[in-house]
Amino acid sequence: MKEFLVANPIVFETTLAMVAMVAGAFGALLGLGGGFILIPFLTLVLGVHIHYAIGASLVSVIATSSGAAASYVRDRMTNVRVAILLEIGTTLGAITGATLASRIEPSGLFLLFSILLVWSAFAMLRRREGAGREMKVPPDALADRLRLHSEYPGGTQKEMIPYRVARAKLGIVLMYFAGCVSALLGIGSGILKVPAMDQAMRIPIKVSSATSNFMIGVTTATSAGIYFMRGDIIPGLAGPIAFGVLIGSQVGSRWLGKWSGQTIRFIFVIILILVAVEMGIKGVQSYF
């Protein structure tokens, strides 16, 4: 297959865009970025070095995050003030991760990716909407001072529901680690950011998802900037992928929305675990 693609660059570019479309569509439906599908495809199927796959994936993550963030901000789901505060943590983490990535052996990255895939698979299995969950919100002087509390449209009538934010300092620390993982593996790491906001900072799940999406663009742009300046973002790889993911996430989610979410989630969990095993084996192989 590789020889055929090398001989036909247009087929190569179109194939990348098509696979990215599927990745973007499933990513949007399942709340994961396209990176979870794209990086295994690029590394395991096409044999691309994981650093280039990460670089291309980062660009596609910015594209989907910016596209979705536009709608969330318009719908007043995003807490922009919380996002700016937490981005201090995520951008510092992204700098650390992008700097470390060039010093870590690909096998290490494969293993780390494999672990995160398994984590994501289990997180998807026990994903809950959070509706009706009542949690005590401890007082937070920093959140009061920075006016982080806000309101969001919820309920059946889309009325504005007020909420308070807690543990702002802890949130910044957790975001540092999320930013680091994002830059190391080329993913948005919403899988880490949303629970940090939802569980630790007591922000409603819908606001956490929207704010996480808003932050993902800034985090990934920080690390993508470093990859780009280092020459690790190959335009012929990143361009078609960003294009495909963007179209896939916008158009595909409407089609896939008609399918049973539970069925897709179950199938995808199995795929994630299989890919995790494959990537884990690739990571371990180099040690023997």
């Binding site: 009542e134 919100v137 509390h149 309101e151 007020p162 909420y163 922000i203």
Partner: peptide
């Protein structure tokens, strides 16, 4: 959903 415990400045 988080419930406000005191009057929020939201």
């Amino acid at each position: 959903m988080s419930s406000p415990t005191s009057k929020p400045d939201s």
